[in-house]
Amino acid sequence: MPAGDLPDLPTAPPTVLTHAPVLRALQAERPIVRVCTPAGDEAWLVTRYAEVKQLFTDCRIGRTHPDPERAPRIRDHVMLKATDLYEHETEHAEHAQLRALLTPYFSAKRMRELQPRVQLLTDRLLEEIAAAGPPADLHRALSLPLSVRVLCELLGVPYAERDRFQELVHGMADLSDQQRSEAGQAELIGYMSDLVSRKRRRPEDDVISGLCAVEELPDETIAGIAAIVLFAGYDSVADAIDLGALQLLTNVDQRDAVLRNPELVGGAVEEILRTAERGGPGLPRYAREDVEIGGVTIRAGEAVLLDTTLANFDDSVFAEPDRFDVTRAPNPHVAFAHGTWHCLGAPLARIELQTVFASLLPRFPTLRLAVPVEELRLSAASFTNKLVEMPVAW
């Protein structure tokens, strides 16, 4: 089928709390469908839960392409090129090595040690919000500063330098200007290279210092890893806090249930993770060899998009998936992907989200949106479909 006859992938949801109708229609039709990507090339879109999970664990699917220059394009963005950190021939082994290097910094023990610090930062930000009085932009006043501060402390990036690296991250995330995104990536790696040199002279208890202690890791590799971790984690938790607050404020019965019973915070966080993801158009992968799945044959070299957002709304797994339910159990969402691709930052994200929502609602029990939900806007030019602002009052 010519690309022009294929359904086009939308680049953003129509509204903050809804999915593009074409995507839900494709999901209802069959689990894997041929689509035209935002860059104009062809890809297989995987929308159902079982097939998404299966392909995350299939070693015939990978992040790299044997011929990156000829790889089907997803979007013209530096982070969606088929080059990545790895060589195609050794991708899975290199990925496993990288996970082994980073896993100790996201261990349950380290997260427990970090939680009091997350609580302290959250309490300070909530006090500042209360002192300033309503209305407030929850994104700028709470979600983003908390997410950035915690990530900086974990990585070892000086928070005092946030204006500099935020500028580089924002540039790198720009979907509307490929030159700016590539320049942002190069400058962010350059900034990290300088930081690696500083950590070698004065190591601390953080990820970058720990990587510097690994003898076989050259400085440029450490800088590249640190840049990707900072970029990937920079506002992902902030986005979840924003959209989680939005879910609770537009589902007042669920908010009230959490207020009455704080033990529901954990379930609320899992439901936020299931429903808040608004990324697109799916996590890009390439077939390393022919794969038969879901009634189709994915040929070697073809692009595959694993849509975790739609998988989390698969009604064969989640009853009434469009309903936000803080008591949903079980809730086996794939917001953090699956298998060897499961996000290493998941424990950190859960610590932050649980701390925020255990503190925010009791501190502001009358919290409400300060504008109609229809007026909330997503940033179409950003790498993630994040809220531009989250105005609240109380």
Rank of each mutant, 00 (worst) to 15 (best):
M1R: 06
V22C: 06
T37W: 14
D41Y: 05
F56L: 09
T57W: 09
C59H: 09
G62H: 02
H65F: 07
P68K: 04
V78Y: 12
T83E: 14
E91C: 01
F106C: 05
P116L: 14
R117G: 12
T122E: 10
E127Y: 00
A131I: 02
G133D: 03
L146P: 13
V148F: 03
V148T: 07
L151D: 04
D163H: 09
Q166H: 11
E167L: 07
G171M: 09
A173T: 00
D174N: 13
L175T: 03
R180E: 08
Q185P: 00
R200M: 13
D205P: 00
G210A: 04
C212K: 01
A213H: 02
V214Y: 01
E215L: 05
Y234D: 12
S236F: 04
V237E: 13
D242Q: 08
A257R: 03
L259C: 05
N261C: 09
G266Y: 12
A268E: 13
P284V: 08
R285C: 12
V291N: 13
A300N: 05
G301D: 05
L305E: 15
L306S: 02
F313P: 03
D314W: 07
V317W: 14
E320Y: 06
D325Y: 08
V326W: 12
A335K: 00
T340G: 02
L344N: 02
P347L: 08
L353D: 08
L353W: 13
V356N: 09
T366P: 00
V373I: 06
A380Y: 09
S382Y: 15
N385Q: 14
P391Q: 07
